[in-house]
Amino acid sequence: MIQPKAFLFDLNGTMIDDMFYHGQAWYEVLTQDVKASFTRAEVDKQMYGKNEEVLNRLFGAGYFTPGRVQELSFEKEKRYQAAYKPHLQLINGLGSFLRKAQESHIAMAIGTAAITFNVDFTVDNLDIRRYFDVIVSADDVTTSKPHPETFLKCADLLKVPYEECVVFEDAPKGVEAALNAGMKAVVITTMHPAHEFAAYPNVLACVKDYTDPVLEKLFVA
């Protein structure tokens, strides 16, 4: 392990285990509102990046007007929040991990493809905003992961060198974004098993949750 100066967290699937609810919301909007004939598996496969990018991958760029993209995106997020709110909680051990990081004077940021509307839903309902000096959402970047822009912007705003940041991610494209940013990564295996990250040389560890004792090594001076 390394002794990092900053922790950069993805949100969905990394801080909260909510990806099933995102997939269900997209599936309902696409099959009920748009009347498309996608299977749930087809929707889940494309469920990463910005909402506009999801729609472009499924239907082709330009299929929907910008106004319609916004309407569908907002409807999806409303359904997601309504379904997930009764289950909203941090992944096991993360609350204690955040407190320890703060006590250890490790800077923290959220770098996510979620829109601000969903970031606020999570951090305010869970009362964790105080831990994060920086939040970079889909609304703050031009290019989604695996492009490194999200994590580079987090580090720049924290004023921490890229190589002294550790990224927490649940998806291969997020780990690839960390690699492209010159950062190490810890994988939370909520959605993808550890073997799917075997090709990434920047992975420090793959853990089920934040209670794994291997994470203690991040705090060793």
Rank of each mutant, 00 (worst) to 15 (best):
Q3R: 15
Q3P: 04
Q3D: 11
F7W: 01
L8P: 10
F9L: 11
L11S: 10
G13A: 12
M15D: 06
I16F: 08
D17N: 15
D18M: 04
Y21G: 05
Q24L: 15
Y27A: 08
E28V: 13
E28R: 13
V29F: 03
L30I: 04
T31D: 10
Q32P: 04
D33P: 07
K35A: 13
A36K: 02
A36Y: 00
T39E: 02
A41L: 05
V43K: 06
D44H: 11
K45Y: 14
Q46G: 05
M47W: 07
K50T: 14
V54Q: 10
L55F: 15
R57N: 14
A61G: 07
G62N: 10
E71H: 11
L72H: 04
L72C: 11
E75I: 12
K76P: 06
K76H: 06
K78Y: 05
K85H: 11
P86R: 07
L88V: 09
Q89W: 06
I91Y: 11
G93L: 07
G95P: 03
S96M: 06
F97I: 07
F97C: 07
K100E: 08
A101F: 09
Q102C: 09
Q102S: 14
E103K: 15
S104M: 11
A107P: 02
A107L: 14
M108K: 05
I110F: 12
G111C: 00
A113L: 06
A113M: 09
A113G: 11
T116M: 12
N118C: 12
N118R: 10
V119C: 01
F121Y: 03
T122Q: 02
T122R: 01
V123P: 06
D124K: 14
N125I: 03
L126A: 08
D127V: 13
R130S: 15
Y131F: 15
F132L: 04
D133S: 15
V134W: 09
V134H: 03
I135M: 04
V136N: 00
S137K: 02
D139R: 05
V141I: 15
V141D: 02
K145G: 07
K145R: 14
H147P: 01
E149M: 05
L152R: 04
K153H: 03
K153Y: 02
L157I: 07
K159W: 05
E163M: 08
V167C: 03
V167E: 05
E169N: 06
D170N: 14
P172M: 09
P172L: 11
K173C: 08
G174N: 01
V175L: 03
A177E: 12
L179N: 13
A181R: 01
A181Q: 02
G182I: 04
M183S: 03
K184P: 08
A185H: 04
V187C: 02
I188S: 11
T190L: 09
H192T: 11
P193M: 10
A198Y: 02
A205S: 11
D209T: 00
L215G: 01
E216R: 07
E216N: 13
E216C: 00
K217Y: 06
L218W: 00
V220S: 11
A221N: 11
